[in-house]
Simulated scan of single mutants.
Amino acid sequence: MIVDKLAETILTGENVGFFLGVPVEEETPIGEVDGSNKDFYVNNPPIFPRSCNDLTVKPEDVTVTVDGEAATVSTILFNESEGYAEGFSLASAPDTGDSVKVSYVEEMEPFLAQDVTPDVKQDTKEVSILNESAKITSYAGTTITLKSEQILSKNGLEQFRKLMYYKVGETTGAEQYKFRDKPLNLYGYTVYHVDGETLGRFYFENVKLKPDIPGGKAGDNLSFTLEMTVSDTPTLVIPKV
């Protein structure tokens, strides 16, 4: 690989983004079920690229059923002004009165991230062998974690609810939520970009998020830390040249 080092663009914090994906199961999408309409929209856009193998959302990233039977998604619908995936078109229109359900992953850019720090540790062992003074290093499993320092914003508690809590009740004017005993199985990716060009993404599957509660002190922003473990091997996706 030959590059002109002096012409290289140095990447900074403004060139990286961090996103999480929260699974949504069996949601009733927005759209008329009248025997002719094929276009439907999710209630919680954007849609996350669940397959984790491309730089955009594809039909296989959503699962749709009509009256409990699998339906074919022909295309993904994107928001014209913002460019994010917000819905889908079916190959054939559901009949009037049919029950349409969609499962997908909701994408969110959590809070106001100050940094994101991936950490990879691999188990190693030094092995001695007969008739040799040198040692061989054997490599075993890896442990991957993600850590992100965050500042709490106005809508932050709503993201806390989706990421860490489950509903236990409601009153006339409020809803109650409790910590999840077991964390959700999330998705995530870091994206690297320069001047509107996407350089690539690192996708993370089977992400578990440690619960936290924001704190602060006088004169400072309210802050907290997102600490995550990653069970699967990350996938690097880059544009075709």
Rank of each mutant, 00 (worst) to 15 (best):
L112N: 07
Q150D: 01
T75W: 05
E132M: 12
V16N: 03
F88A: 07
T198A: 10
K182L: 11
D67C: 00
V105A: 06
Y192W: 10
L112I: 11
K154E: 10
F19I: 03
V57T: 10
V168F: 11
I10W: 07
A93L: 00
V237Y: 06
A70F: 10
Y189V: 02
G83A: 12
K38D: 04
V3L: 14
F48A: 01
R161S: 10
D195W: 07
A7Y: 06
V16A: 13
L20C: 08
S99N: 10
I2C: 10
L6M: 14
P29W: 07
I151F: 11
R50E: 11
M108G: 03
G196W: 08
V33A: 00
L186H: 06
A85M: 02
A71P: 00
S99V: 09
S36N: 09
T117Q: 13
S148Q: 08
T12E: 13
T137I: 15
Q176Y: 15
T229Q: 12
T65F: 03
E126A: 12
T145N: 15
L209N: 03
V62L: 04
E106Y: 08
T235W: 08
E82P: 00
L226Q: 05
G31I: 02
R201A: 11
M164H: 06
N53G: 11
E126S: 15
G200S: 12
F48T: 01
G68E: 01
I238Q: 09
T12H: 09
Y187D: 01
P211Q: 09
D34V: 00
N15D: 13
V62T: 05
V102A: 09
E227W: 13
S133H: 06
T229W: 07
K5P: 04
T198V: 15
Q159K: 07
K5F: 14
G200W: 08
L11K: 13
S92G: 02
G156D: 05
P214I: 13
D61F: 08
V73H: 01
N79H: 13
G97K: 00
N43M: 11
N221E: 14
N131C: 09
P234Q: 09
A134Q: 05
K135D: 05
F179C: 10
K101R: 14
D34R: 00
D195Y: 09
I47Y: 11
V100A: 03
F48M: 07
G97D: 00
G87T: 05
V230F: 04
R201W: 07
D67G: 00
E27L: 12
S138V: 14
S74V: 07
N43T: 10
E109Q: 14
G31S: 02
E26S: 14
R161G: 02
S231G: 03
K125L: 13
S128M: 07
N221H: 13
L90V: 01
K121A: 15
T229H: 03
I30L: 15
L112M: 08
D123H: 07
M108L: 15
D98Y: 00
P214M: 04
T145W: 02
V237H: 06
T65C: 03
T145G: 14
D123A: 15
G215V: 13
E60T: 09
A85I: 03
F40L: 02
F224E: 01
D98E: 02
K58R: 12
T12R: 14
G219P: 13
N79M: 04
I129T: 11
P46E: 02
S36M: 08
S223D: 12
